[in-house]
Nucleic acid binder design. Sequence first.
DNA 1: CGGGATCGAGTTACCGGTAACCTAGAGGGG
DNA 2: CCCCTCTAGGTTACCGGTAACTCGATCCCG
Lengths: 340, 340
Amino acid sequence: MSNESKGRPPTIYDVAALAGVSHQTVSRFVKGHTNIRPEIRDRVESAVKALDYKPNGAARALATSRGNRIGALVYELMEVGPNKIIHGASIRAREAGYLLDIVSLDPNDDAAIVQAIGLINQHDLAGVMVFAPTDRVIDAVGRVRFTVPVHVESDMPPQGSATPAANEVGAGMLMDHLAALGHRRFFQIAGPPDWPSARARAAAYDSALENLADTTTSAGTVHGDWTAASGYRAAMEMPLDAGVTALVVGNDQMALGALAALGERGVRVPNEVSVVGFDGIPESEFYRPSLTTIRLDLEGLGASAIDRLLSMGVEAAAPTPAVPAPPRLIVGHSTAAPGA
Amino acid sequence: MSNESKGRPPTIYDVAALAGVSHQTVSRFVKGHTNIRPEIRDRVESAVKALDYKPNGAARALATSRGNRIGALVYELMEVGPNKIIHGASIRAREAGYLLDIVSLDPNDDAAIVQAIGLINQHDLAGVMVFAPTDRVIDAVGRVRFTVPVHVESDMPPQGSATPAANEVGAGMLMDHLAALGHRRFFQIAGPPDWPSARARAAAYDSALENLADTTTSAGTVHGDWTAASGYRAAMEMPLDAGVTALVVGNDQMALGALAALGERGVRVPNEVSVVGFDGIPESEFYRPSLTTIRLDLEGLGASAIDRLLSMGVEAAAPTPAVPAPPRLIVGHSTAAPGA
DNA sequence: CGGGATCGAGTTACCGGTAACCTAGAGGGG
DNA sequence: CCCCTCTAGGTTACCGGTAACTCGATCCCG
């Protein structure tokens, strides 16, 4: 499948020799320098083409001491959410001429976290992104002396960022939707408490309850681990005699588990209990009943994270910064007025 | 969040100066060379620690002309499957001291494919992996002159590989399961025909029909695009008057869509029609009815792909090559004897 | 006790680019 | 018409490692 010619790949010196110019002229050409006579430019251009010259990234990185890669720390649990973020980030990074170095973290193994960070912390990176981390990861990252810009995407509004986090907004939209339908008694199945994004959603749940009519109350909150299995368990143990009519779940997978559990317990959705999820994964439309949820623009989020990272470096800011689409409420058949 | 000291990060020369030795000695120490006097070794070691020295990957890559990264081309559709493969590959690569450079491909844009390949090829990589590609991607990759080993993981048994592909085995297990229950009339919703893994599964479906009792027949095959929505559409249009009792679906997401469609059409699963999926994603246990499917060890697959790639290079083969677990049949409530 | 093998460490060149400096002409203004 | 500036391109040094070669001190053995 692979294919080689005689020896090493061509260098600028090879190109220079073939074109009859100095290597520096080739370097200038490759970088798109303008002050080159058309005649010389043509010679270099055809030499580049003839040799199929490709610049050596390592040499460039060494000379400029500025890498062409962005390290990305991702959580081991590669659920759908983090993935889409990575995908958006990867596309965006490539547009800016960078490659994404991904390192999967095992969240339960501190040593592995440290090792992974050590691996990523070589000097040839343009920056480091930390995606959807847990507190433990944030901690570990915070203790490391990085030599490059680091951006931690924690889903929490960082140091007074202007745009409110999508998590808060989305959770608020769900609560408004449920309240408008007439629900007054809620129960929450939240994500793991050491995930900032789970906390953000849970906090929005709490504050929505406070801001809504004071007759709205919560029958409690339990924490799952994002998986459908944990949502199932939580919903199996959820009190049914507390008058709860609305179940707020931290993501769509757990909501799927909850739907299954409620079905087994003979609770009809949405007639007796309404269920909402979070993330808006494509599958949620095909759950039965189809899920009311919040669609997040996760790819946009990943892209904008890259933009923010790049703007931290000397790099000129992206011409058109990516702006994630705002969270959108998807209304399915899992919500209805209580007792409909 | 980041943290800097005075200037550039320390180099071997800094360490050498502090330890009072030559830079070469430091280099030897870092590489774990044995022939160093204990006294000198200690001096170097403490100097390394004092300066928090980390080798510069770019310089090393330049000097050895051997990168410490593996490029990974992944399909844009980051469904659950490809993801887990990537995750497994990433872990394995890190164990071997490599980082994974991931490049997401837009499958519909040939120019983007070429550009992505160009990007990955111009950088200094130890090798390139191509995961779960479509024919189009395989084609594009095949035309490129790579300077490093390339491994294409196409889910098809390559040049007579000894281990039969998991896809064939798994699909066969599903067919056996259905046949043993007494099903004779099948229908298939396959993945996109330009995906080798989809073709492998479909081919196994066909050959199983041939090998089973000659009374078993197929009422047809349609192709989806791996998404739940496409599974839904396909199942909505599937003929119901052809006596089909078994619906074989190319992955779990499409199977979810098919379950929803059958529900809407008033077809009871599994009483009237049995449904099987493929992949064994965790959520499939919580579909209603829970899905009979094949659990693939995708992470193991990714890891072994990395092993194979590394063994193509000069690199000594991994001490303990990763062996993916064999496909496993997960029996849910979506299958039963026909007319049960 | 002398000569070759071995060991530990230093010296130097080189990987393939970029940056800074330098130079020979061309062009322009007083 | 001369001097200055600007332009196009070449020269040289350097980024931070590794590899190859060198050299003095031991060590071993005949």
